[in-house]
C-alpha cells in the first residue's frame, strides 16, 4: 500500500506538497523491485527540470534506473544523506529516503498524477 498523502507518477516516483515545495522520492513498490540500492545520483540544486525529465539515477546491485521528475520546477534541495546511506530509500522510501525538493513551476501539474489508490491499482 502506498502512502495516501501524496501523488504518484507512472514511472514510480511520488510527489508530496509541503508548504510551497514538492518533495520527490520513489515508491515502496519501486524500491522493492530495484532491490538493495547502492548509489543515488542527485541533481544539482538550482537546475530546472520539466515534468517527466530525468532528475537523477538510482543504482541497485543489479541495475541502474533513471528518476523522472513527476512535475516541472527548480531543484531547491537534495537529500545529501543518500550519498553515504543510499539504503535509506529501501528502509524509508516515503520518509528518510526522499530524493529531492522542487519549487514547482505550476503546482497544478500535481493534478495530473495518480492518487495512491490509483497507483496501487496499476501494480
Amino acid at each position: 500500500m502506498s502512502e495516501s498523502d501524496r501523488k504518484y507518477a507512472k514511472s514510480h516516483e511520488w510527489a508530496k506538497l509541503e508548504g510551497d515545495v514538492v518533495v520527490v522520492g520513489i515508491s515502496d513498490h519501486a524500491q522493492k523491485e530495484l532491490g538493495d540500492i547502492t548509489f543515488v545520483e542527485l541533481p544539482t540544486v538550482g537546475t530546472s527540470v520539466h515534468a517527466g525529465g530525468e532528475c537523477g539515477v538510482v543504482e541497485s546491485v543489479k541495475a541502474a534506473s533513471d528518476i523522472y521528475a513527476p512535475i516541472g520546477g527548480d531543484v531547491v534541495a537534495v537529500n545529501g544523506a543518500l550519498e553515504d546511506a543510499p539504503e535509506l530509500i529501501n528502509q524509508e522510501p516515503f520518509a528518510g529516503g526522499w530524493i529531492l525538493k522542487l519549487q514547482p513551476a505550476d503546482v497544478t501539474e500535481l493534478d495530473a498524477l495518480m492518487s495512491a489508490a490509483d497507483y496501487d491499482a496499476t501494480l
Binding site: F39, E41, E59, V61, A64
Partner: peptide
C-alpha cells in the same frame, strides 16, 4: 577497483 559506489556494467 572503482572510485565510488557507482558500478560499471
Amino acid at each position: 577497483a572503482l572510485e565510488g559506489r557507482r558500478a560499471a556494467r
